[in-house]
Design a protein around this nucleic acid. Structure first.
Lengths: 345, 345
DNA sequence: CCAAGTTGCACAATCGATGGTGCTGATGGT
DNA sequence: ACCATCAGCACCATCGATTGTGCAACTTGG
């Protein structure tokens, strides 16, 4: 069953291939083709199950209709939501989404971008690359639109979550949730988890520190424990913190749901009394946190907003690389509807 | 900066375009081209940042090097793991993964497959489509390899989780975890959640019923409450069950993490004593379940195994559509390392 | 020294769609 | 009756890579 082409249709309809092409791709009015002819050809085309060969079109037009998204991993609430939202939005625009994960590996990132360029992808969104600017430069050289998501670059425009603001809001909420004077949290409110080399983490740390300083007068370096996203490492870090009875946390901001998984194991072991008075916050949202033994205050990033703004930047490229901030949402434990599918409108 | 082509390289090297092509795509030995020539051309090629135009290649070869995966959604532990594993495996094979979600909407599914075919994708994996056979037929007509994952079809080969066996194992484990005689669970062990029209759900129900019948003598239709994946609906269903004190669940198998989210809200409200003696199982795994107030017995599907077997079926297509079963793993609560990245080897 | 291979490469058709250009016949104005 | 328009379409080069085929220049065996 050899696939049917415009040449086959040309024979079938008695028209020329170029006429068939025009009738099927919508440019027939501009080519002054009779409406009757157009309709007839379209009818015969789908009667015969014609499908445009997009590789041929792409070759000719030197663009493919593909939209690329680069992620570190899928298997994470934040990134999978991002992928979902991207997918929906791209399809709504008649683009074919093509999402690739690179495992935060610079070599894989480079290679992925090369591949995307080779397929003449129309645009690339980069979410959480290790070197976004390198990617932007590659895209530039290939004449490819590129937008950074979640991690700003200096070469291309970026859409980022307001991490600093989100962390501040979260810290404030934690102070408010704590019963007792703010002073009781002096030196006893900690941030755990996240990669300190990571832009988002640095911003969150800053937001956290701001609030802690303002409400307790100071924020010691020891209160910041960004030792990576690995649950095991974060668990270990939490263990150390709680072991030091004199300075054990009374409030704990956990950076990322991944780190949270680890920390949670430690929390589960705490004496009930200590648990009672502990305030826990988590940057990033997981629906299951609502049902944990511990009440959790979370920050949920506006994934749809990030994607929407990214596409907006694509549509109307600013003259200079811009940075658009999208505010996240604060969620008290028990808040929020049961909406895992948060990325569906 | 117009992209450089084999013709540019031909001028640069003094060779013909066909020679350049052969040297760069690895077929040069077969074309009896001198090794020195090949090396020289390759050198000049990457000196000039040459990149094969994959649309042109695809057009000529009528295959694209793209591998497609169709999912209902990304934002779910199971499917995002699947996407992750697919991505890794496809890239390892030199294919470019292209994953699209269709929201379980038949129209979107059809349209997605059309698009994939138009891009001359080399193969399509279908995971959780509403009508897998329709997709298989479309692929067949286009001469496209197609494998069903997680949901068997009759037209193409399928790789599925052993849902019946998994559910049986889970039910057995629940009986074992319950202290007291099996008879105490007669009429008091329930299955909640899942789409009854769904193949996987039907299989799981069968597995569940088998064990329940064997250990309590009977299994009433009322013990099966497959009212969909929606957390809210499942919560409602659980509420009803626990409200009927005379027949309130002593063991509850929740089908899918999505349904689990809803049910969990209800469990959290139960009196401690009742909670104590309740045995909870969940088909599908979420790392956070390990830290819930309630101990949970889970079944984790072998996502890597599913993908691996799917590719194996691609490599060596059986003469008849085959069904390969991949056993899932039983996880007692607290078991399992902190491995959200379970799909990374 | 010649026929029969080999080596090493160049030529040109092809994949399917696109879009600039050119050609034909009808219409309209004078 | 004649030239200018214009509607309606056909022709053909083109996008970049692949691949069947042809053909010199060498080698080899006799």
């Amino acid at each position: 069953m050899p696939k049917i082409t415009i040449y086959d249709l040309a024979k079938l309809t008695g028209a020329s291939a170029s006429t068939v092409s025009a009738c099927l791709n919508g440019t027939w009015r501009g080519r002054r083709i009779k409406e009757d002819t157009a309709r007839e050809i379209q009818r015969i085309a789908d009667q015969n199950g014609y499908r445009t060969n997009l590789q041929a079109r792409g070759l000719r037009r030197s663009r493919s209709g593909l939209a690329g998204l680069i992620l570190p991993i899928y298997n994470d609430r934040f990134f999978s939501s991002l992928a979902q939202s991207f997918d929906d939005e791209a399809r709504a625009r008649g683009l074919c989404p093509i999402t690739v994960s690179t495992n935060r590996d610079p070599a894989e990132e480079q290679q992925t971008v090369e591949t995307l360029i080779s397929y003449a992808v129309d645009s690339v969104f980069t979410a959480g690359a290790s070197d976004p600017d390198a990617i932007s430069r590659m895209c530039d050289r290939a004449g490819l639109a590129n937008i950074n998501i979640d991690l700003p670059g200096s070469v291309a425009s970026s859409v980022i979550s307001d991490n600093r603001g989100g962390a501040s809001a979260l810290a404030e909420a934690m102070f408010d949730a704590h019963d007792g004077p703010d002073a009781a949290l002096a030196g006893r409110i900690y941030l755990v988890g996240g990669e300190p080399g990571d832009f988002a983490t640095r911003e969150r740390i800053t937001g956290f520190e701001d609030v802690v300083r303002r409400r307790t007068g100071s924020c010691d370096a020891a209160q910041i424990r960004a030792t990576g996203y690995d649950p095991v490492k974060s668990a270990h870090e939490a263990e150390i913190l709680f072991a030091d009875t004199g300075r054990a946390p009374r409030a704990l901001l956990v950076n990322s749901t991944l780190a949270f998984e680890g920390v949670l194991g430690v929390l589960a072991e705490l004496p009930a009394a200590q648990m009672q008075s502990l305030v826990v916050g988590c940057y990033d949202y997981d629906p299951l946190t609502r049902y944990l033994k511990v009440p959790i205050i979370s920050v949920r990033q506006d994934v749809n907003g990030l994607i929407r703004e990214a596409f907006r930047l694509l549509d109307t490229p600013p003259s200079e690389p811009a940075i658009v901030r999208v505010p996240p949402t604060l969620l008290a434990s028990g808040n929020g509807a049961a909406d895992t599918n948060e990325t569906r409108p």
